[in-house]
Measured scan of single mutants.
Amino acid sequence: MGFKLLSKLLVYLTASIMAIASPLAFSVDSSGEYPTVSEIPVGEVRLYQIADGVWSHIATQSFDGAVYPSNGLIVRDGDELLLIDTAWGAKNTAALLAEIEKQIGLPVTRAVSTHFHDDRVGGVDVLRAAGVATYASPSTRRLAEVEGNEIPTHSLEGLSSSGDAVRFGPVELFYPGAAHSTDNLIVYVPSASVLYGGCAIYELSRTSAGNVADADLAEWPTSIERIQQHYPEAQFVIPGHGLPGGLDLLKHTTNVVKAHTNRSVVE
């Protein structure tokens, strides 16, 4: 069995187990497998329904001669939608809004960016022009300005110390501490036991640490421990890039980060 097929099978099995364990909360999309990078042309966006009122959005972007996937989250909030992270750029984010209108038909009224990198804030200006209120932590807003990236308009308070959590509509926002970046936030959907790890969490097929220019490698494993301790009931975990899975993604990420750190020390 090929690795790609095995990865998709694991996603399907995880979703099936969740649907059985929580039949009222989960209505997993039966329309197909989780979209992969090879299936999404740059400039297009796919939506994948995880649970009743919960979707991931998947886009792709060219970077350094390669094409990478990027995940975000959409959560229903009454007759409105909360968006977590842009679709990595203005063109993708405009396509995301169009796809949401086509498939869901509810307005996106608020959006949260989970850290300051372009795959999370690139497209904020498109959201703002569409009347979406954009939010991020003060740290993310400051770092985005320093980096020359787009800056969300509103500040999220109460997320300055490791372990801080605040309720934001249908989700809980959690600051686990520094990891992929010093400002990275985690998003949890309690009604569906869905954990969105953003770039602080890796997919299972990833074996290298990737972009760690703004990471705190020493603190990252401790931050992941905080996530595990705060959300032990999480059933569906979405990484910032690639295929979702279960809580095993947290341990896998820790292993990859520690291996990278150990290699760096040896070198």
Rank of each mutant, 00 (worst) to 15 (best):
S22H: 13
S193T: 08
L83Q: 04
R167G: 06
C199M: 00
Q229G: 09
D216L: 13
V54W: 02
V171C: 03
F168M: 15
H260Q: 10
G163C: 03
T253G: 01
L106Q: 08
Q49T: 12
T109H: 11
T60R: 10
F174W: 04
A209K: 15
I58D: 03
L195P: 03
E145T: 13
R142K: 15
L127K: 01
K258R: 14
G2R: 06
L13F: 06
D118W: 07
A192Q: 07
A95Q: 13
E172H: 06
A66T: 08
E80C: 13
P239M: 01
V108A: 12
R263C: 14
G2Q: 06
R141T: 07
L159F: 06
Y48D: 11
H241T: 00
D183K: 01
E267I: 09
L6G: 07
R120M: 04
P176I: 02
T182A: 08
R46W: 10
L159P: 11
E44C: 10
Q235L: 05
R142G: 12
E44T: 12
V237G: 01
S191H: 10
T14A: 11
E99Y: 05
Q49S: 13
T140A: 04
A111M: 14
R120C: 04
E101S: 12
S139E: 08
T254R: 10
R46E: 07
R110G: 12
H154N: 04
A98P: 10
L24D: 10
G242N: 03
H260I: 14
G89E: 01
S7A: 08
I50T: 13
S27A: 07
E203G: 09
I74R: 02
L127P: 03
G131D: 06
Y48F: 12
A165Y: 08
G242H: 04
R110T: 10
S181E: 01
Y175R: 02
A179E: 03
A144D: 04
Y231K: 00
P152E: 02
A209D: 07
R120A: 14
G72E: 02
V189L: 08
S7K: 08
F168E: 02
L185D: 01
A129L: 14
H154A: 14
S56E: 10
Q49E: 06
C199I: 00
S160C: 11
G158V: 11
V108F: 02
V37C: 09
V266G: 14
Y202C: 04
T254E: 12
H154W: 14
A111I: 05
A19C: 07
R128G: 08
D118Q: 12
V187R: 01
D214C: 04
A259Y: 07
I40Y: 05
G122K: 15
I238T: 03
V42A: 11
F174H: 03
I74M: 13
L5E: 08
R142T: 14
P244K: 05
L159M: 12
V166I: 12
V237I: 05
S16M: 04
I201W: 02
G197R: 01
Y68M: 12
K91R: 13
D119P: 00
E101Q: 13
E44A: 13
T134R: 02
G245P: 02
L9S: 08
S223H: 00
T93K: 00
S38T: 09
A234R: 02
H154Q: 15
R206F: 06
H230K: 15
H117F: 00
K91P: 09
L243S: 07
L106M: 13
G177F: 01
L250Y: 15
S193Y: 12
E101R: 11
H260D: 07
K4M: 07
G123Y: 03
S22Q: 06
R167E: 06
G177L: 02
V187P: 02
F3D: 05
P190I: 04
I151P: 05
A215N: 05
F3R: 04
A218P: 12
